[in-house]
């Protein structure tokens, strides 16, 4: 099938490829998909104390549309607050990249990756707070 110009552009020049320290309490990691299904996305966000995403990185095993979806997601995430990031929907990605119906699952995966990274970050923050509460009580 023919790819849209935007998919090709992202796949050839993916933005924000890389790895953040998954043990950093300010970093949230989302790992979604499965090798047997042909796509795996790992999306990471680094969040400031003020709740703003200051950095986002990804690595994706998948087709050009999957790579483009995650690359675009990292671009959109940077500078957004956690709550704003949670508002990103897969249809926004479909529209921006002109994904054909057979590639919609790539955008769904990207939305899942964002949600999963945010959940991981929040989970870390909550357990940190729990620890500090316990510490102050002690």
């Amino acid at each position: 099938m023919a790819y849209s110009a935007k998919v090709i552009e992202h796949a050839e020049n993916p933005r924000n490829v890389g790895t953040l320290d998954k043990n950093d309490p300010h970093v949230g990691t989302g790992l979604v998909g499965a090798p047997a299904c042909g796509d795996v996305m790992r999306l990471q966000i680094k969040v400031t104390d003020g709740g703003v995403i200051e950095d986002a990185k990804f690595k994706t095993f998948g087709c050009g549309s999957a790579i483009a979806s995650s690359s675009l997601a990292t671009e959109w995430l940077k500078g957004k607050t956690i709550d704003e990031a949670n508002e990103i929907r897969n249809v926004d990605i479909v529209q921006e990249l002109n994904l054909p119906p057979v590639k919609i699952h790539c955008s769904v995966l990207a939305e899942d990756a964002i949600k999963s990274a945010i959940a991981d970050y929040r989970h870390k923050q909550e357990s940190l707070q729990a620890v500090s509460k316990t510490a102050s009580r002690g």
Binding site: E12, G38, C63, G64, A66
Partner: peptide, 11 residues
Amino acid sequence: NFVEGEGLMMA
């Protein structure tokens, strides 16, 4: 291994 076929074809 570790590279998806369609992604490679596009590359």
